[in-house]
Write a protein that binds this DNA or RNA. Structure first.
Lengths: 139, 139
DNA sequence: CAGGATCCTCTCTGATACTG
DNA sequence: CAGTATCAGAGAGGATCCTG
């Protein structure tokens, strides 16, 4: 930890290769996670499943604007990464329950850190956008 | 994600409206931040600028695979949100220095939380993907 | 040096219709 | 109920050329 900042984050403090090779960036697990949670619906689905398990249409009704297709894709992606568990009950009609795995639950903590930051600084960001979106300034 | 609420210690613990309205999801600051840092280059640029200020071509050379266009767009986006400061020196040839604002530096901490999680669980995720990507299972 | 302007491709997302 | 299949639009990202 060097510099004027008190707490420089540990993983981001490790020196990067210079230049950063293209494939190293592609394979970086941090890049990878960010691209997953950076999509439109993943975090919301994770948060809802963090409260309790949900069935498919329960999630569909619970997220007003999501399309059936995107809900399916989001859940499949999370399932493939081992963050969500999918359990099929052979009832009639069939029912499928989605829940967070322990791995998925563990993601809630760092996610909440980012959420806190976003909420804390949202007004500063909004103000900055407002100021910068003034092409007609007379200096 | 009701980020508009005032005192929220653990944002992800607060109950969500059910159903979550479409526009509330769009305006959610958490969604907003995630979509910014979820793009291809933003985090890497933030981390590099977190080490020290950089000039434009210095960043360009420092990130092997980035195109000039995307570097510009990434920096503009960060600048608009007030995370990056852009300073022009009227030399010949001109030089432009990019650096993190205090707001930008404050993002490094929650980002590092997510980075730690990603690094810690990357093998579990990779293994899960490996297992799930077997379309030809005979049970 | 630090971009802007164009053009092009590919992915993400949504809408709609159909099914075991 | 819990999806799959197909089509279409919007935007991200890249390549190339040009300029103050």
């Amino acid at each position: 930890m060097s510099g004027t900042n008190t707490d420089v984050p540990a993983p981001l403090d490790t020196p990067l290769p210079s230049p950063v090779p293209g494939d190293e960036h592609e394979q970086c697990p941090v890049t990878d996670v960010l691209r997953r949670v950076g999509d439109k619906w993943t975090v919301l689905v994770v948060v809802l499943l963090g409260q309790r398990p949900h069935r498919f249409n329960e999630l569909h009704r619970g997220i007003e604007a999501i399309s059936q297709r995107m809900l399916t894709r989001t859940l499949r992606g999370l399932e493939e990464d081992g963050l969500v568990h999918r359990e099929v009950f052979a009832t009639v009609p069939p029912s499928v329950q989605y829940s967070l795995t322990p791995l998925g639950k563990s993601l809630l903590k760092p996610l909440s850190g980012l959420a806190e930051w976003a909420i804390e600084h949202q007004s500063a960001i909004a103000e900055s956008r407002r100021v910068n979106n003034r092409p007609f300034r007379r200096t």
